[in-house]
């Protein structure tokens, strides 16, 4: 159990910098998810914490120790890889025992830990099988088992669920969360799936193009995204962005309608979540329907802002009948408006 501190962490491959100074303090026992689009540097960041990539600049602390110069073996971490990375020539039992044997634990202690982990993960029946004789989900469990028998200070996960089918993914997600709480281990988890990130993490770090855009709890990220990128990345369906400018205490949209709320002046982008638009015949936000998706519990209405080409999506509770071409009015509460300046940063 340990705290992790990332201090102005940078990484370059040759002349190209892929991480531009990441700062974070991860509390003891906390579950932190690093989320972002493909290629943003998530794996690189995680692998630097693991010691599999060198640090170009900055410092990493695990517990009290600065670990920049330490080998992966000396950092007291365990990692679960996307492709599981099980040792193909060893049985499940040997896979889990490998790290313990190297550390020179007594045989009965090794057996005890392996049996215990096998019981927690329900893989007791496969202990003598080879990895290729297991299904994807079972391999995933073995990889988890190999991590927990070591009883490390920190768990690192690099998209461990992305090779599983949707149902299994949801189930394993819950199990990982329960396991981490039960063991009280600090965990850093990389994913590009924002739903996974929201459900798993105590806190989320949104990474974009090598910059940490925001680091906060899922609710903070949802309620007060600090940048347009975070606003668009977190939440499903994604937030709508309507260009406009501030006049007095209202935002004037492209088609001239005024949405009350906001302060200051100049060009802004108004962000509104689909679920925060309230049907209101006299409302300022006029949507021309293109099509509706009936999801049962709610209806997603896709369309454009009347008189413009700006896409707009609204989520309405229950089943609603709408016709193509129809114009619907919506209003929005002031506290649910997100205003972003020309540089993409939040201004309200």
């Amino acid at each position: 159990m340990a705290k992790i501190i990332l201090d102005n962490l940078k990484k370059s491959y040759g002349a190209t910098e892929v991480l531009h100074g990441v700062n974070a303090e991860i509390e003891d026992g906390e579950f932190v998810v690093i989320v972002g689009p493909s290629g943003c540097g998530k794996s690189t960041l995680l692998r630097m914490i693991a010691g599999l990539e060198t640090v170009t600049e900055g410092e990493i602390y695990i517990g009290e120790r600065m670990v920049n110069g330490l080998e992966p073996a000396d950092r007291d971490i365990a990692m679960v890889f996307q492709n599981y990375a099980l040792y193909p020539h060893m049985s499940v039992r040997q896979n889990m025992a490998y790290g313990l044997k190297i550390r020179g634990l007594p045989r009965d202690e090794i057996n005890r830990r392996v049996e215990e982990a096998a019981e927690i993960l329900e893989i007791g029946d496969y202990l003598d099988r080879k990895p290729r004789q297991l299904s994807g989900g079972q391999r995933q469990r073995v990889a988890m088992g190999r991590a927990i028998v070591r009883q490390p200070e920190v768990f690192l996960f690099d998209e461990p669920l992305s090779n599983l089918d949707a149902k299994l993914r949801v189930q394993m997600r819950l199990e990982i969360r329960k396991l981490q709480k039960r063991l009280g281990v600090t965990a850093v988890y990389v994913t590009h799936d924002q739903v996974e990130a929201m459900t798993l993490g105590d806190r989320l770090m949104v990474l974009n193009g090598g910059y940490a855009e925001q680091f906060g709890t899922p609710i903070e990220l949802y309620e007060r995204p600090q940048t347009i990128f975070v606003a668009g990345f977190i939440g499903s369906p994604a937030m709508n962005f309507l260009p406009g400018r501030i006049e007095g205490d209202a935002v004037v949209l492209e088609n001239g309608s005024k949405v009350p709320g906001g302060a200051g002046s100049g060009q802004v982008t108004l962000g509104v979540r689909p679920e925060h638009l309230v049907a209101d015949d006299k409302g300022p936000i006029r949507l021309q329907v293109i099509l509706a998706e009936q999801l049962g519990a709610n209806t997603l209405v896709h369309g454009v802002l009347e008189g413009t080409d700006t896409q707009l999506v609204v989520s309405l509770a229950g089943i609603r009948a709408v016709t193509e071409g129809e114009v619907m009015g919506f209003s929005i509460a002031r506290e649910q408006m997100h205003l972003f300046g020309p540089d993409g940063r939040r201004i309200n």
């Binding site: 992966p72 990692m79 492709n83 990375a85 040792y87 490998y98 790290g99």
Partner: peptide, 18 residues
Amino acid sequence: IPKSVVEAAAIDGAGPMK
């Protein structure tokens, strides 16, 4: 040999010879 298998062994504490 997948690189991650060797990396997993490194994390498990095995040195280069091992």
